[in-house]
């Protein structure tokens, strides 16, 4: 393996892992607060990809505007999912919300088939993101490959700042330990939960946009596999932990890319690695890398 090829794989793994990480933050935040696996989250990611496709390719807006619109529209969809499908079930047994989540996921996927058609559509990549940069030793890098992890790290840093330095962030951390106590101190918990859904959806939108640029196409079921893998990344990193989600995503990205790079024969099993990782972590450290034991409430 030449240095060039290794660097390519490395950047690839980092990009893919950052995308898993961005998606998995949405899972981990919602799970941390509501103990709910938001099955619709992968579909929210898909909507982000479609929105940017429509904004920039169908309606020919410039990319910056298209990205802003796509993030905003996706965030609104995420908020609507919470408002319509989960909030009415807040007092219901947890299994009800879980079933509702599966229902929402099917609904969004099939709605997308009807509205967007089931056909995959190609995304035209902006040239500036694809023009290789040549480094010494013939190492070639595509700007997009660097953009993805950089964007991901900036967003995670911003999110951590929000969680640890602002008042809504304090409320969000409090809620994930004890909703009722947080409520009795005067926090409108539905607002804070909505904030978690909104932030998670915005990050998923960014991931969807970058994914659409990378692969470069969109289709209604594109959220399923990345969604499941990102969920695994969240469990792997320790569900409820935001740095954990990011680390879990990046590890998963490296496992997938590097195993295929070093053992090309295994490429057929690429999607199985994530599940293998899940089984291993559940057997040996069910709380994940950074997870703390979630105490049962009294």
């Amino acid at each position: 393996m030449t240095l060039n090829i290794f660097v390519q794989h490395f950047v690839n793994a980092l990009s893919l892992g950052s995308l898993y990480g961005l998606i998995s933050i949405g899972y981990t935040m919602v799970y941390g607060i509501l103990r709910l696996i938001n099955f619709a989250h992968g579909d929210i990611f898909m909507l982000g990809a479609y929105f940017v496709f429509f904004a920039t390719i169908v309606y020919k807006l410039n990319w910056i505007l298209g990205v802003i619109i796509a993030i905003a529209a996706t965030t609104i969809c995420g908020l609507l999912v919470d408002r319509i499908a989960y909030r009415p079930l807040r007092q219901a047994p947890r299994i009800s919300a879980l079933i509702s989540a599966i229902g929402v996921s099917f609904f969004i996927e099939n709605f997308a088939v009807v509205v967007f058609t089931g056909m995959p559509r190609p995304v035209v990549q902006p040239k500036i993101l694809m023009k290789p940069i040549i480094l010494p030793n013939k190492v070639r890098l595509i700007p997009l490959g660097i953009l993805v992890p950089v964007v991901a790290f900036i967003l995670v840093a911003a999110l951590l700042w929000l969680l640890y330095k602002t008042k809504p962030g304090l409320a969000m951390r409090a809620i994930s330990f004890d909703i009722e106590t947080t409520r009795m101190l005067g926090v409108d918990v539905n607002k804070i939960i909505a904030l978690a859904f909104g932030l998670g959806s915005a990050l998923a939108a960014v991931a969807g946009i970058l994914w659409a640029l990378r692969y470069p196409r969109v289709e209604p079921f594109m959220g399923m596999t990345p969604g499941i893998k990102a969920f695994i990344a969240a469990v792997f990193g320790g569900i409820g932990s935001i740095p954990g989600a990011m680390i879990g995503g990046i590890i998963l990205g490296f496992v997938e890319i590097m195993s295929v790079a070093f053992f090309p024969n295994l490429s057929g099993y690429k999607d199985a690695f994530a599940f293998f990782l899940l089984i291993v972590i559940l057997l040996f450290k069910p709380t994940g890398i950074l997870g703390s034991k979630i105490e049962d409430k009294i």
């Binding site: 304090l170 951390r173 409090a174 330990f177 004890d178 926090v187 703390s292």
Partner: peptide
């Protein structure tokens, strides 16, 4: 209300618990 069983938020610092009390 100071609730039965105290209900201190275990992962927040003492000061953060107080700040949360001033949320409104």
């Amino acid at each position: 209300l100071s609730p039965e069983g105290r209900r201190i938020l275990p992962q927040l610092t003492v000061e953060e618990n107080l700040k949360l009390g001033a949320y409104i």
